[in-house]
């Protein structure tokens, strides 16, 4: 009798632990993944010189159908080394600011709302540091439907 109870207890304990672990796994691993955008964020590592600031990726709600994207690096960019590709194929222009540390990409035409885009960037620093892998920036623009801004209590 005692033995059976013990076995039962063991089974219950094991089941509880498995359940708990599953829950933890579900809660801490699966759930956040589900909450994230379907489109992966920009790949972060660009050693040996790194990105200090990059635009928001994923799904972006914006009123600007010609939204520009700026990438700021820790070192001065070698302008001649910059290679940018946008998929689907999109005409664009680039500019350099912030002592050539910031690269901005402007679409020549409007982005299409709801389209998945991927910007691929390859570049070197002025000191000829190379990035190990091209930067991938994926995004999709969504048209805003409502803005919470009311300003009705702002004094005039």
């Amino acid at each position: 009798m005692k033995k059976l109870i013990t076995k039962k207890q063991v089974i219950i304990i094991i089941a509880s632990v498995v359940f708990f672990l599953s829950f933890v796994f579900f809660a801490f691993y699966l759930l956040p993944k589900k909450e994230k955008n379907n489109i992966p964020q920009t790949i972060p590592e660009t050693l040996p010189f790194e990105i200090k600031d990059r635009p928001q990726g994923g799904e972006i709600e914006t009123a600007l159908d010609n939204l520009a994207f700026s990438f700021t690096f820790s070192k001065e960019i070698d302008k001649n080394s910059v290679f940018v590709q946008i998929n689907p194929d999109t005409e664009f222009e680039i500019s350099f600011e912030n002592n050539n540390k910031t690269l901005t990409i402007f679409p020549k035409n409007k982005w299409i709302y709801g389209e998945n885009y991927e910007i691929k960037i390859n570049l070197k620093s002025k000191e000829k540091d190379e990035i190990k892998e091209p930067i991938l920036h994926k995004f999709k623009l969504n048209k805003p439907k409502n803005s919470p801004m009311d300003e009705s209590q702002i004094g005039y």
């Binding site: 009123a63 600007l64 159908d65 010609n66 048209k143 805003p144 439907k145 409502n146 803005s147 919470p148 801004m149 009311d150 300003e151 009705s152």
Partner: peptide, 24 residues
């Protein structure tokens, strides 16, 4: 037409484009 503000309680937003300009 752009979007509503506060669901319309604070009016609505229109977006005007001209070349590189976007006026909200």
């Amino acid at each position: 037409y752009g979007f509503a503000n506060g669901g319309g309680s604070a009016g609505y937003t229109y977006i005007c484009s001209s070349g590189n300009y976007r006026l909200i």
